[in-house]
């Protein structure tokens, strides 16, 4: 009886959480011209159409580039910061931690607007660069937090041992610290990538003519057209995320870091 109730509750919750994706996948596979569920016959034409829409191709490339390079930049800034916050007795460590974590606390739309108004416009920065900076700032807190927590479990005396065995400080970092936080770094990358790729509010104000991230482009497309291609594209993105998470989980038990 208890068992039954358990699965009942879980079943309903999972239907609520996952059901919409099933609907989207099927709606995208409609043979008819309108968004509908159940679909009016099945075909893959909308899935195929997504790839022919020029603006989606461009915005997909932009989103990809932002996610990859923004996250890498965030890691380049974040790994040394995480290391210093863990290993050094820094004056103002708490302040630095708060500053670096702050972009998580403040709503993305505000970050985007503030950047636009006080950095991009006055300094005449191009939209692409602005997006890149915004996405990096957005991912930085995750990079620092995830790398920090994987470094936290790593005893500092291992580096001391390495130095006593002849390493320079830098070698101790690359030969001992880095191999041991590899999982955390990879997890931070994936988390950062997904966050950046799916991000809307930060980019909302920073998109310019012809320069739009994919989610924003989708929002714009939705306002004009009401065909199943957005459903198909959404389904494709969902599959992409699933694939990334699945591979990450297989490789390093990703969920431990989230």
């Amino acid at each position: 009886m208890r068992h039954f109730a358990n699965w009942g509750i879980l079943g309903l919750t999972l239907i609520f959480l996952i059901g919409p994706f099933v609907i989207i996948i099927l709606a995208g596979a409609s043979a008819g011209p309108n968004l509908a569920f159940p679909p009016e016959g099945l075909s893959l034409k909308w899935y195929a159409k997504v790839f022919t829409i020029e603006s989606f191709r461009a915005s997909f490339v932009l989103s990809m580039a932002l996610a990859v390079f923004g996250t890498i930049t965030a890691l380049v800034l974040g790994i040394p910061a995480a290391y210093a916050l863990n290993r050094y007795d820094l004056p103002g460590a708490e302040t630095i931690r708060t500053i670096v974590a702050a972009p998580i606390i403040v709503p993305g739309i505000i970050v985007g607007l503030a950047l636009l108004r006080y950095v991009v416009v006055p300094m005449n920065v191009t939209v692409t660069v602005a997006l890149f900076m915004a996405h990096t700032a957005l991912v930085l807190p995750y990079a620092v937090r995830v790398v920090s927590s994987s470094m936290h479990n790593l005893r500092a005396d291992m580096e001391e041992a390495a130095v006593l065995l002849g390493c320079s400080r830098m070698q101790a970092f690359t030969k001992v610290v880095l191999p041991n936080i590899r999982g955390g770094v990879l997890a931070a990358f994936i988390l950062g990538f997904v966050t950046s790729f799916n991000q809307v509010p930060v980019s909302l104000f920073l998109s310019g003519p012809g320069v739009r991230t994919l989610p924003i482009d989708m929002l714009a497309y939705m306002e004009i057209t009401f065909d199943p291609s957005i459903a198909a594209l959404s389904a494709l993105l969902a599959f992409m995320s699933l694939a990334i998470v699945f591979v990450a989980e297989r490789l390093l038990g990703f969920s431990r870091y989230v």
């Binding site: 005893r155 005396d157 291992m158 390495a162 130095v163 006593l164 320079s168």
Partner: peptide, 20 residues
């Protein structure tokens, strides 16, 4: 003198082995 130039060995209380 830097620690890596002293030619001293230290066996740590916590071993400090390299887990990887």
């Amino acid at each position: 003198l830097a620690a890596n130039k002293r030619g001293i060995g230290l066996v740590f209380q916590s071993y400090a082995l390299f887990p990887h």
